[in-house]
Simulated scan of single mutants.
Amino acid sequence: MSNGINLRPWREERRQLRQTQFVYLAVATLLLGLVLSGFWWWSSNQSIQAVQQENQLIRDQLGVLDAEIREVTELREKREQLLQRIEVIQSLQRQRPVTIELLDQLTGSLTEGIYLTDVRRQDNQLTIQGHATPSQALSDWMRSLEQQQRFSEPVLRSVTSDESIGANRFDLLLPLAEDQP
Rank of each mutant, 00 (worst) to 15 (best):
D60C: 00
R96L: 13
P134H: 09
I5W: 02
V35H: 12
T107G: 10
D104E: 12
L173Y: 03
Q148T: 04
A167N: 09
R120T: 05
Q16P: 01
A28Y: 06
S158V: 02
M1D: 09
S164Q: 14
L17W: 08
R120W: 04
R85K: 15
S43A: 12
E68W: 13
I165H: 09
E101K: 15
I165C: 04
S164E: 14
D179L: 10
Q93W: 15
Q125W: 06
Y115R: 13
T111L: 09
Q84L: 07
R18W: 04
E74C: 02
R169E: 03
W10V: 00
E112Y: 15
Q105C: 04
I128W: 03
T117F: 08
T127R: 14
R15I: 00
L83W: 13
R8W: 05
Q125P: 00
S91C: 00
L83E: 12
N6S: 11
Q56W: 03
R15T: 00
L174F: 03
H131F: 13
T20C: 03
S161M: 05
R157A: 05
P175T: 00
A167I: 00
D104F: 12
E74M: 06
Q129I: 00
Q129M: 07
Q125S: 08
L7R: 04
I69E: 11
D162G: 06
L57T: 07
S109N: 05
M1H: 13
Q95S: 14
I5M: 06
R59N: 08
Q16I: 00
R96V: 01
L102V: 11
L156S: 03
W41N: 06
T117P: 14
Q61P: 03
Y115G: 01
L36A: 14
L176C: 02
L75W: 11
M1V: 06
D171M: 05
G166N: 08
L172I: 07
E112N: 12
L102T: 03
V72H: 10
E12D: 07
A137K: 08
A167K: 09
E80K: 15
E77M: 12
R120G: 02
V72T: 05
L172D: 02
R79W: 10
S158H: 08
L62G: 00
D162P: 06
I100P: 01
I128S: 03
Q46T: 02
G166C: 06
Q147I: 04
F151S: 04
L65N: 13
I86A: 07
L176K: 11
Q19A: 07
L83K: 14
L156D: 03
G166M: 06
E163C: 00
V51E: 10
Q53W: 03
M1I: 08
I69Q: 13
G63E: 09
R15G: 00
V155Q: 15
G166H: 08
Y115W: 15
